[in-house]
Structure formats: structure tokens, C-alpha cells
Design a protein around this nucleic acid. Structure first.
Lengths: 109, 109
DNA sequence: ATGAAATGCAACCATAAAGTTGCATTTTAT
DNA sequence: ATAAAATGCAACTTTATGGTTGCATTTCAT
């Protein structure tokens, strides 16, 4: 089942990003090249199976997509959810900025 | 020990945001008003002690600050780490955009 | 046809995370 | 002085998470 990238609840998205291993997987893939599990596992110290699990978390969050090609499955970065997160952060910051603005307006009289 | 807001490893920051309860706590505080633990616990269905734990996670991540005033401890939103996250997301997206650009340049000849 | 490569899948382990209950402590209000 | 309010602190339970090992399956190359 593929993710809808709905911005209703950003928590799972943040959670998917809240792990160093997954961030470094994303970093590798963010150059736009797709890579196999073996390719992504080569320069880590954890097992290939562990990498597979992390990739599943990333895929469930919509941050990567995968397709089987031959005997290997290729993973690629999917940037859309990043915008959802940005939108969420913006909404929080905007609320904060508005509050600051009102406070300033209040103090300045 | 207070956080330095270093952007060396955004994973703990993402992890702190990867929980609905904590996101809703942040949402309440993002209006700039500071609130007590009791105030933040009033309209949740979890116990006050659980809220306290979440607040500690947020504080360790630098997303809130607290000070004791009288018998209660007041918590306030701290927006600085949000910018760290933005910076990280920007770096990932920029890398992605660059890759797309190179790909386009490559295709167009 | 067969061995190596890449992956899938299941069971298992250890630790962390999220939540609870119970009780002690500190402050405030009457 | 004392009861209520707000919090702190510790122990405990349950479940999720990150990782492993072992083995089966699929696909490729020779």
C-alpha cells in the first residue's frame, strides 16, 4: 500500500526521519540515483536485513519508492513528503511569528 | 543541560517531533504563551506524568524551555531548532534539485 | 545446469519508549 | 496551621524499535 502524502498527521513522517541510519540512507538517495539494497548496505556496519527494514519504514512514510528490477529491488528518493513537513513547520512558525507580532503591538502602546 | 541547537545531527530533533502527543503540545505552545504542566495536561487523555515525560523530551531537543515559577513550572516554545530542521530539509532538497538539473542538462543534448 | 548474487521471510533478542500507579515534596490559599 | 494544588520521583507494564541469525527463493552468469 502506497502512501498518500497527506499532511493530516506529520508525526509518522518525522518519526521516519528520526533515525540516523535512515537519514543517511536518504542522504545517499537524495542525489536522485536509485540504488539496490546491496548497494545501500555496502558501506554500513549493520546487516543487509536491517537496511531492508529501514527502507520499509522510509517507503511506508512515502520518502522512497521501490521497484523490482531483475533479481534486485531498486530504491529511489521521493521528495514530496519533504514539502509536507515544510508546510507543517511553516504553520507552526507562522503561528509563533503572529504571536510575537501581537505581543510587539501590545507592548508598543 | 541545555541544548546547543547544533545542526550536526538532526535525527534526535526529528525523533522528538515524531510523536502526536508532543506535536500537539508544541502546537499549543506555538502561540507564544507559556503554560504549566497542569495547563498542558488538562485537555489530553493521558496522565499528567506522561505529559511531563513528553515535555522533557521536547526540552532535551531544545524545542521548549522551562522555568519554575512558584509551585508550578512553566513551559514555552523555543523556535530555534525549527530552523535547523529547515536547513537540513533544504540541503536534501537542494541536492535533489541539483540532480534533477544535471539530469535535465544531460537529456537535453 | 549449476553456483553465486540479491533478496525475502521468520524467529528471536535486547533495549527504548509510552504509559500507568503510588507516594513524597513544595507552595499557595484560607 | 492545614488542606488543596502542582509537581517530582520511582517502580512497573506493555509494546515498539533496531538489530541479529538462519534459511528459503529468485535470478543471473558461465
Amino acid at each position: 500500500m502506497l502512501n498518500d502524502s497527506a499532511l493530516t498527521d506529520p508525526a509518522p513522517l518525522f518519526a521516519a526521519l528520526g533515525d540516523r541510519t535512515r537519514l543517511s540512507l536518504l542522504a545517499k538517495l537524495s542525489d536522485g540515483e536509485s540504488r539496490s539494497i546491496a548497494g545501500l548496505s555496502s558501506d554500513t556496519d549493520i546487516t543487509r536485513q536491517a537496511v531492508t527494514k529501514h527502507l520499509k519504514v522510509l517507503e511506508d512514510a512515502g520518502l522512497v519508492i521501490s521497484k523490482k528490477v531483475g533479481r534486485e529491488s531498486q530504491f529511489a528518493f521521493r521528495p514530496e513528503p519533504i514539502n509536507d513537513i515544510r508546510a507543517y513547520l511553516d504553520s507552526v512558525s507562522r503561528q509563533w511569528d503572529d504571536a510575537l507580532g501581537r505581543l510587539r503591538a501590545f507592548v508598543e502602546r
